[in-house]
């Protein structure tokens, strides 16, 4: 436990805050600490987590990606047309197509960054505008409802009946989220490529001198982000059963806030899957709790902003020093 706190101080602190909020909400509201509420929290936030772990890999490698939410929308539209062209498809083809298109978009970003030595924030802001503009122009802002049935039919992966008789279920996106988290965790913790990503984000010049292939790092990071953007887009359309060109705009900044809240460092070299999950959850639980407490929905976001702001302020004050004092006193 102590070694966990030392290795992942931000995550540990975030976890403590989350537990405190949960405790408070459990006491303040009857409906918070229920299986049904937790299930809906997971169902509703799975897409954000999928994107968050994708963005995490880019942040670890020292980059940033603003374009992934738009990329997800592009994937959704291209998928609709692709499935139409092949006459239906199914989940396997769906994941392959969505993931493939996502990776392609990620590779375009990586190629621009690497080939022309443009920093990632400039490239992704450019591709954000280019993709969003083209998408809106070509689709004329049209919504698509006639998605294939396999895509929109709800898939339950786990269900149980509570003592009160209501059904609690976890849907497919939660399983995909778990898969994305596990895969990302495996990549960044247990493969040489993943550790190279950390090294590259931490000290690019040192990584280059050690003989790490820089181009590979950019393509892996942005390719992974693209993959997650595509899969997240597929899941989003599955949940809302429609495709709307500008529905995902703005989500990129919310996800970015959650990931950085979870301990990933802007500038590279630090971050964890657990942190991403906790970061997304902190925001979600806060909103959920405010909702249950009967606070006006319009006030949620305001409070979320305050929470993020105070979390940042807290984590930048020297809490490490506090830990040292505590350890010294033992």
């Amino acid at each position: 436990m102590r070694s966990f706190i030392r290795a992942y101080p931000t995550e540990a602190r975030l976890f403590a805050v989350l537990v405190a909020i949960c405790l408070f909400l459990s006491l303040a509201s009857d409906s918070f600490f229920t299986l049904g509420n937790f299930a809906s929290l997971l169902n509703n936030n799975s897409v954000n987590v999928i994107w968050a772990v994708g963005l995490l890999v880019v942040l670890i490698a020292g980059g940033i990606d603003i374009s992934f939410a738009v990329a997800a929308s592009v994937v959704q539209y291209l998928c609709v047309y692709a499935f139409e062209a092949i006459g239906g498809g199914g989940w396997v083809i769906g994941f392959l197509v969505a993931g493939g298109i996502g990776i392609t978009i990620g590779f375009i970003n990586a190629a621009l960054i690497h080939r022309f030595r443009i920093i990632s924030i400039v490239v992704t802001i450019a591709t954000y505008n280019a993709m969003f503009g083209l998408l809106m122009f070509i689709t004329s802002g049209r919504y698509l409802y006639n998605l294939p049935e396999w895509w929109t039919n709800r898939v339950t992966i786990f269900e149980t009946q509570t003592a009160q008789g209501t059904w609690v279920e976890l849907a497919l996106p939660v399983a995909v989220m778990a898969g994305a988290m596990a895969a990302t965790w495996f990549l960044i913790r247990h493969t040489t490529t993943g550790r190279q990503l950390f090294a590259f984000g931490d000290n690019p010049e040192g990584a280059r001198r050690a003989g790490i292939n820089i181009a590979l790092m950019q393509f892996v990071a942005f390719g992974w982000m693209g993959l997650m953007a595509g899969i997240g887009g597929l899941m989003q359309a599955h949940i809302v059963q429609e495709v709307v060109p500008n529905a995902l705009i703005g989500r990129e900044l919310d996800v970015l806030a959650a990931v950085v809240l979870g301990g990933a460092r802007l500038g590279g070299g630090r971050g964890s899957v657990l942190g991403c999950f906790l970061g997304v959850l902190l925001v979600a639980v806060t909103q959920n709790g405010l909702n249950l407490l009967g606070v006006s929905p319009f006030a949620f976001k305001m409070v979320v902003g305050v929470i993020i702001l105070s979390a940042i302020s807290m984590s930048n004050l020297k809490l490490a020093g506090l830990v040292k004092v505590m350890r010294g006193g033992r």
């Binding site: 900044l253 919310d254 970015l256 806030a257 950085v260 802007l266 006006s296 319009f298 006030a299 949620f300 976001k301 305001m302 409070v303 979320v304 902003g305 305050v306 993020i308 702001l309 940042i312 302020s313 930048n316 004050l317």
Partner: peptide, 25 residues
């Protein structure tokens, strides 16, 4: 506090958006 400007302004953005929507419904 020494926090990263992207993060601080992002939090401020979320706050102001919430505040504005709260005030104007």
């Amino acid at each position: 506090v020494g926090a990263h400007p992207i993060l601080v302004s992002l939090a401020m953005m979320i706050f102001l958006r919430g505040l504005g929507e709260f005030l104007t419904r």
